[in-house]
Computed example of a mutant assay.
Amino acid sequence: MQRSSSAVTEKNRRKPAMKSILLCLDGSVYARSVCEHAAWFASRLEASVDLLHVVDIRERAPAGRQDLSGSIGIETLDHLMSEMVDQDHARSRTAQLIGRHLLDEGRSILKEAGVANTTASLRNGAVVDAVQDLSAKADLIVMGKRGEGVDFASGHLGSNLERVVRAVDRPCLVAARAFKPIERVLIAYDEGKSARRAVSFLANSPGFKDLDIHLVLASDRPGDSEVTKALAWAEGELSSAGLKAACRIVQGEPEAVITGTVASDGIDLLVMGAYGHSRIRNLIIGSTTTGMIRDCRIPVLLFR
C-alpha cells in the first residue's frame, strides 16, 4: 500500500538537518591540521564542511596632495602613486590565486578523509566579519591557534582567534598544530552557562559515545553543596545520553588543575567555556581561556 503524501511529509519533517562545520583556512602551518580536525568532527557529527578563506589586504591611504615639490616633482609623485596602485592590484590578484589554491587543497584533504559534502568561499575583508556572516548556519567553527603572520616560537595566539570566539555564539574548535585521533576528552566544568552548553553539546552528539570522557570541576570549596549539585547535574546529563564519564571535583585553581589533568591523563581534546569575564577584567587579571589555549598542545573546543 502506497503511503500518503502527508505521511512522507511528516517523516521528512522529523529528519534532522545535516549539521554544518565552518572551517577557517589560511596559509599558516595549521592549515592541514585544521582540515584534519574538521574532517574528524564531520564524521562524528555527520556534518558537511564549508571552507572559508578571507583575503584581507589593507588599502594604503593616499599620500595626499600636499606640496612635495621641494623634494620630489609632482609628475614623479603621480607616477609613483600610480605604480603603488598597480602593485596593490597585483598583490590582490596574487592573494586571490593563493586563496583559491588553499581552498582546493583543503577540499582535497577533506575528500581523502572521507568528507564528500564540502563547499568553499573566498571572501575579501576582515576575518571576523566573514565568519559572523557565515556562522548563522554553522554548528561548529574550526580555526588554527595561530595565523600565518604569527611567529610560532613567540607563543602568541593569532590576532583573529579571540575576536572570532567573542563575536560568534557557536562552538569554536581551536586546532592543535598537528592532528591526532581523539580518544580521551576532558570537560573543564565551572558551573557557568557556557560549561553547561559544552556538556549538552556532547550529550546531544551520539558520535562521542565511544570516547573516554572525563569531567573535572576545579573549586576552592570542593565540599560545598552547590558545587556537588553542579557536578551531579553534569554527570546526570552525560549519563542520560549514554555517555560514560568519569566526573570529579578537584581542589585548586582552574588553570593549574586543568593543565595538570591534560598532561597526567593523556587528554586528546579539551572542552571548556570561553571568556566568561569582560575584556577590561581580563586585561587586569589575565584570561584563563587565553592561557589554556596558549599552553595546551591539544585541540580546545570552546563554548560561549
Rank of each mutant, 00 (worst) to 15 (best):
Thr9Asn: 04
Thr9Ala: 09
Glu10Trp: 02
Lys11Asn: 10
Arg13Asp: 13
Arg13Leu: 15
Arg14Thr: 09
Lys15Glu: 13
Met18Ala: 12
Leu23Cys: 12
Cys24Glu: 01
Leu25His: 00
Gly27Trp: 05
Ser33Phe: 02
Val34Pro: 01
Glu36Asp: 10
His37Asp: 04
Ala39Asp: 09
Phe41Ser: 07
Ser43Lys: 10
Leu45Met: 15
Glu46Met: 07
Ser48Gln: 12
Leu51Met: 08
Val55Gln: 11
Asp56Pro: 06
Ile57Tyr: 03
Arg58Thr: 14
Arg58Ile: 14
Glu59Phe: 09
Arg60Gly: 06
Arg60Gln: 09
Ala61Arg: 10
Arg65Asp: 14
Gln66Ala: 05
Ser69Ala: 15
Ser69Lys: 04
Glu75Phe: 05
Thr76Pro: 06
Thr76Ser: 09
Leu77Glu: 12
Leu77Gly: 10
Asp78Tyr: 11
His79Phe: 03
Leu80Trp: 05
Leu80Gln: 15
Met81Lys: 13
Val85His: 10
Val85Ser: 05
Val85Thr: 13
Gln87Cys: 03
Ala95Glu: 15
Gln96Phe: 05
Gly106Asp: 07
Arg107Val: 11
Lys111Ala: 14
Lys111Asn: 11
Lys111Met: 15
Glu112Val: 15
Gly114Tyr: 04
Val115Cys: 04
Asn117Arg: 12
Thr118Asp: 01
Ala120Ile: 03
Ser121Asp: 10
Ser121Met: 06
Asn124Pro: 03
Gly125Tyr: 02
Val127Phe: 08
Asp129Gln: 13
Asp129Pro: 05
Gln132Leu: 05
Leu134Arg: 12
Ser135Trp: 00
Asp139Thr: 09
Leu140Thr: 12
Leu140Gly: 07
Ile141Ala: 10
Met143Ile: 07
Gly144Tyr: 07
Val150Thr: 12
Asp151Gly: 07
Phe152Leu: 13
His156Leu: 08
Ser159Glu: 12
Ser159Gly: 11
Asn160Arg: 11
Leu161His: 08
Leu161Gly: 09
Leu161Met: 12
Val164Arg: 15
Pro171Gln: 15
Leu173Val: 04
Ala175Pro: 03
Ile182Thr: 14
Tyr189Ile: 00
Tyr189Lys: 01
Lys193Leu: 13
Ser194Pro: 05
Ser194Gly: 12
Ala195His: 01
Arg196Leu: 09
Arg197Leu: 08
Ala198Asn: 07
Ala203Pro: 08
Ser205Arg: 00
Lys209Gln: 14
Ile213Val: 15
Leu215Glu: 01
Leu217Phe: 06
Arg221Asn: 06
Glu226Gly: 14
Glu226Lys: 08
Val227Trp: 02
Thr228Phe: 04
Ala230Val: 02
Leu231Glu: 04
Gly236Gln: 10
Gly236Leu: 15
Glu237Gln: 15
Leu238Ala: 06
Leu238Cys: 03
Ser239Tyr: 07
Ser240Tyr: 06
Ala241Asp: 10
Leu243Gly: 03
Lys244Met: 14
Cys247Gln: 15
Cys247Trp: 13
Arg248Cys: 08
Arg248Trp: 01
Val250Ile: 10
Gln251Glu: 13
Glu253Tyr: 04
Ala256Arg: 02
Ala256Pro: 01
Val257Leu: 14
Ile258Asn: 01
Gly266Asn: 09
Ile267Thr: 08
Leu269Cys: 14
Gly273Lys: 00
Ala274Ile: 02
Tyr275Met: 10
His277Ala: 14
His277Glu: 15
Ile284Glu: 11
Ile284Ala: 13
Met292Lys: 06
Ile293Ala: 01
Cys296His: 00
Arg297Leu: 04
Arg297Met: 07
Pro299Ala: 09
Pro299Arg: 00
Phe303Ile: 13
